[in-house]
Nucleic acid binder design. Structure first.
Length: 272
DNA sequence: CGAAAAACCTGGCAGC
DNA sequence: TGCTGCCAGGTTTTTC
């Protein structure tokens, strides 16, 4: 589900709701997420103050007093809810955190691809999970990244999905970025020209920033922190528009399937 | 070795 | 109404 913009929106929501409050109870309702939720979490975070919430790639980190912090990944369907009631009986609620301001923070995840883990200070954020460059810093790494891409035989689409290359791009925005940059998604990395590559980096920043400003994309499962479903729906230009007219040239948008993943593109506009 | 496909899990929806 | 098969925004593991 959530790519960088959606995680950023969630993290901003968590900052508003959590910073300055204290954890009174950390309850694991169901530990069976992608990885087993560490049982120590139930004791570890009691009476800790929440100092900050940060994002790296598609990961969120809740920073607490002391040197033990919370890492989360939303997988495909993970979401947080803030409520004044301890309504943890809802289906697919897996973790419930009681705060000293009377609120409950609940983690809900239908498909259970998300997970939680403990991280110790000091946190090396630039090497966190060996993730690639944050999109907001791309311009400083253009030459580095171009050197790397020049030896890759993978398609540019799958390179963009590689979290250790650039962090945070997922399947929706990969299609959107390549449409914006006018790049054929199945072009191999080693055949991308320098000027094409520059356009990809510019489009990456542009598309992701725009998505953050609009509050992220909502197709089915994504919810922001307040639980409002998709009240800011960003407009997608190619993703999900199979058979519809390209917004630039009226040619029909193509959907291509491989490895259980869809790629949408215009074969007139995306020839570079 | 790198690249492609399968696996993890659940729900929604189209088609019969 | 009910069953089957396919699809879904992520990432790791397995296979080629």
């Amino acid at each position: 589900m959530p790519e960088l913009p959606e995680v950023e929106v969630v993290v901003k929501g968590l900052r508003k709701a959590l910073i300055g409050s204290k954890i009174l109870e950390f309850k694991i309702i169901n530990k069976n997420l992608r990885y087993s939720v560490p049982f120590e979490m139930e004791q570890l975070y009691i009476k800790k103050n929440i100092k900050h919430v940060i994002r790296r790639g598609k990961y969120g980190i809740i920073l607490l007093d002391g040197n033990k912090h919370i890492v989360f990944h939303l997988g495909m369907t993970g979401k947080f809810k803030i409520s004044s009631l301890n309504n943890t009986s809802l289906k697919h609620d897996h973790i419930s955190i009681k705060l000293n301001n009377g609120a409950f923070l609940t983690y809900n995840d239908v498909r259970k691809f998300g997970y939680f883990e403990i991280i110790n200070s000091p946190i090396d954020i630039s090497n966190f999970k060996k993730l690639g460059i944050e999109p907001s810093f791309l311009e400083y790494f253009e030459n580095d990244l171009y050197k790397k891409i020049k030896v890759k035989k993978k398609t540019i689409k799958s390179i963009l999905l590689d979290q250790n290359f650039i962090a945070g791009i997922g399947n929706i925005y990969a299609s959107e970025i390549l449409f914006d940059a006018k790049i054929y998604p199945f072009k191999k990395g080693n055949r991308i020209s320098k000027s094409s590559f520059k356009r990809i980096l510019v489009s990456t920043k542009k598309i992701l920033n725009k998505a953050i400003l609009k509050g992220g994309v909502t197709i089915k499962d994504y919810q922001n922190i307040t639980g409002d479903l998709g009240y800011f729906q960003i407009s997608l230009k190619v993703y999900g528009r199979e058979g519809l007219a390209c917004l630039k040239c009226k040619n029909l948008i193509i959907k291509s399937q491989s490895g259980g993943r869809s790629t949408y593109y215009c074969n007139i506009c995306q020839k570079n």
